[in-house]
Nucleic acid binder design. Structure first.
Length: 477
RNA sequence: GGCGCCAUCGCCAAGUGGUAAGGCAGAGGUCUGCAAAACCUCCAUCCCCGGUUCAAAUCCGGGUGGCGCCUCCA
């Protein structure tokens, strides 16, 4: 397996520290607001990596944290007149709601910064002992220039940073680049006791402390959005490696951004879209499909059209699954069928694609190849297909799809879902009642009436598909 | 100013030395009462200019055009 390592900017053969086991840490969210689709991409990307590594038989220890104390949380809780704790709890709840709807697997551990103050304090103390940190009036800073190798992840060098630094007015720091490990708390701010007085952790230290606790000094993969490369991950390296003297992670994986209508998504531009808002009009798997249809490192452009295209593609896959399930019955273990060899070949192709730096776009193409071939098989051998064979092929499609978090819904339910775009004017009973009426008209060769009903359904967002077995329907996108 | 990424069919998007995956859209056909769906067929030589090589979308150099980071950010 090859993984692109941000540390060296090239693909490298992936070799786990311990054979068969993988430790992975993905930076989670700071809980002061609802998650947006940029979070969604990152969450889905690492969920897929997690799923795939497990699929390949690894024992994966996946850690994703919550940063539940920081300046933004304090600021917002003050604005709302609630405690920082209440705000954090609220958004952790909201996070879980989004996560469930997106079908994200639960990580092995989901540690919170404020549950690890003790570890954080110890880590800061260790850095202080090593001369890599110093205290000023209850604040503790990282002594950046004492750490060799600062900038190795983000490709920056300290001199450039110094000359380009937007000068902070803080003479207490030895260097403008030094960053806070521990912050003395003001009167009514949340605080914890420490050797430097009452205070709270700085931004980056919690990840160093928690990754160390759950994964050790050195682990396999560390990831997050591209925007975390600098300064967050660079600082994590300085903290963790400064303290332990060992490499933090062997492979650094960063996902690309989400743009909206070719523009960077940002609050100031007002083109911010929360996961919640998006899910009102598109199925979670459609969002996943959209994410997974591009390589995780490329920037992706989100738009109304891109969602529609993603939905069209996913529906194509679900349609094959629907046809298979219609024929399927009984136990999956059955006599061989003419698709068996191809199934094995597709599985291999899929693995080859995903083994190449999690190339989910190429993996999705394998799904489409399979879908096309399966449809042909269904068309040509209809009568000869054993129910068990159909069940097995369906199971295969879901096996690969499941690795990407796709095709887990009931296909009929998926195809007949409403999208909040005017295709939900009729409920299932009404639709099926009309279809029965149309069937009667067709039997009587009353084409005018049959077409009238079809047009009526069409106008209400329902598309009909006639076949020898009867009429199926689905809702329009 | 410093560091880095990208440029492939109408749109989206794989492909990092051996002669361009896949999806959407489009054209023709099969099926259908007619449609829809499905299936079959068709649909690009890879931003420009040099270079390396038997061979380059793929490597190197130079352009042009996008974008990101350097401040909170997935």
């Amino acid at each position: 397996m090859q993984i692109y390592n941000s540390l060296n900017r090239r693909k490298e053969e992936f070799v786990p520290l311990e054979s068969g086991k993988i430790g992975i840490y993905a930076c989670g969210v700071t809980v002061y607001d609802l998650c947006h689709i940029g979070h969604a991409r990152s969450l889905v990307v690492f969920d897929v990596i997690y799923r795939y590594l497990k699929y390949r038989g690894y024992d994966v220890n996946f850690v994703r944290n919550f940063t539940d104390i920081d300046d933004k949380i304090i600021k917002r809780s003050n604005e709302r007149g609630i405690t920082w704790k209440a705000l954090a709890e609220q958004y952790i709840d909201e996070f879980y709601k989004d996560m469930d709807r997106l079908g994200l697997l639960k990580p092995t551990h989901e540690p919170r910064a404020t549950d690890h103050i003790e570890e954080i304090v110890k880590l800061v103390q260790k850095l202080e002992e090593k001369g890599l940190a110093y205290e000023v009036d209850g604040d503790v800073y990282y002594r950046l220039q004492r750490f060799k190798g600062y900038g190795k992840l983000s490709g920056k060098n300290v001199d450039d940073l110094l000359s380009g630094a937007r000068v902070e007015v803080d003479d207490r720091k030895e260097s403008p680049l030094d960053f806070a490990l521990w912050k003395r708390s003001k009167a009514d701010e949340p605080s914890w006791p420490s050797p430097w007085g009452e205070g709270r952790p700085g931004w980056h230290i919690e990840c160093s402390a928690m990754s160390q606790k759950f994964l050790g000094d050195t682990f396999d993969i560390h990831g997050g959005g591209k925007d975390l490369v600098f300064p967050h991950h660079e600082n994590e390296i300085a903290q963790s490696e400064g303290a332990s003297g060992k490499p933090l992670a062997h492979y650094w994986v960063h996902n690309g951004f989400v743009n909206i209508d070719q523009e960077k998504m940002s609050k100031s531009l007002g083109n911010f879209l929360t996961i919640r808002e998006l899910l009102e009009e598109c199925h979670p798997e459609v969002l996943r499909f959209f994410v997974v249809a591009s390589h995780y490192r490329s920037p992706i452009d989100f738009s109304q059209e891109s969602v529609t295209v993603a939905a069209a593609g996913l529906e194509r896959l679900y349609h094959s699954l629907d046809r298979l399930l219609e024929k399927a019955a009984g136990s999956v273990a059955a006599e061989s069928c003419s698709l068996d060899e191809k199934i094995e070949a597709w599985r291999q192709d899929f693995i080859v694609a995903m083994d190449d730096d999690f190339n989910s776009a190429a993996a999705v193409a394998v799904l489409f190849d399979a879908s096309k071939e399966i449809n042909r098989w269904l068309d040509e051998e209809t009568k000869a297909i054993a129910p068990q064979a159909a069940a097995r092929v369906a199971g295969f499609l879901r096996e690969l799809g499941g690795t990407l978090g796709l095709l887990q819904e009931n296909p009929r339910g998926f195809l007949q879902r409403t999208t909040g775009k005017g295709n939900d004017q009729l409920d299932v009973e009404e639709i099926e009642g009309l279809i029965v009426g149309r069937a009667t008209a067709r039997k009587e060769r009353n084409w005018a009436e049959a077409d009238r009903i079809r047009d009526l359904l069409d106008a209400k967002g329902v598309v009909l598909k006639d076949s020898a077995e009867g009429t199926k329907w689905q809702r329009k996108r």
